[in-house]
Amino acid sequence: MHFIQRAAVVFLLLLTPQTMAWQAAPAPGGPIVVTLPGKPDSVRFVAIGDMGTGEAEQYQVAARMEEFRLKLPFPFVLTLGDNIYGGKSPADLRKKFEIPYKPLLDAGVLFYASLGNHDDTNERFYKFFNMNGKQFYAFSKGNVRFFALDTDYLDPKQLAWFEQELAATTQPWKICYFHHPLYSSAAYHGSSTELRKVLEPLFVKYGVQVVFSGHEHVYERVKPQKGVYYFIEGAAGELRAGNLRQKGLTDAGFDKDRSFLAVEIAGDDLYFQAVSRTGVTVDSGSFRRPGAPDPR
């Protein structure tokens, strides 16, 4: 083998995940213009799904998240499943999670994971995912109660737990997140009507206002269904370009590049901003909590 070839092989073998971060070129595009209001005492977070590829595009979206955080801090991230694709060795978890999100982790940003069909259920023991060994769990931030569900396995025990938690919740905002979307305009999977049969009645009965899902590798904001706002953000690593279809469900969608979704809840108002890998705001807006008193 020629010396240069041999040197190249040695160089590639030395490329541990720790040294791979530099490989991801910065995402093209200009700086992010933050549209969230940044009100005092608001609850701010980012939602990402289907991100754990370990590829350059995941790193570029992660860099955009950090850019966003430097402009408007957010203390936590919801993961919408498919956190780690393919192998799940310690090296894989470094490459597909710890390195791309290192600036966020170093800044103390917490990741609250939900599991997707490409995840290992034992990811619930991985401390960075803050699941405390549970496949489904709930936590509160300010005036919001978050419910992370495992839609790979919605058995009667999980449904009973979810119903008890909803019934006992005192926070005005109830937000659910999980992997499989109940409503979707994407061609690859489409809406999960089977999951909808068991979850939607609970959302309606107990007043869940917002649901975040992944699984479809696009961004979609679905028209409110039975008073519930649905977002899909499954393009923080993977992408199915051009996969959205006209089904009359979509309020806004983006299927041309990877993205992440930033959210701010201030009192009874929720503000959202979806940002592409190139820093472009592809959707933004706000809505008032259904059932909240009129501010006028």
């Binding site: 192998g87 799940k88 490409h118 839609t151 790979d152 396995y153 919605l154 009667p156 089977e194 068991v198």
Partner: peptide, 14 residues
Amino acid sequence: EDLPVTTVPPTLLL
């Protein structure tokens, strides 16, 4: 580990 999980239909689990 790399075999994706198929959702077990909840109406079956019930």
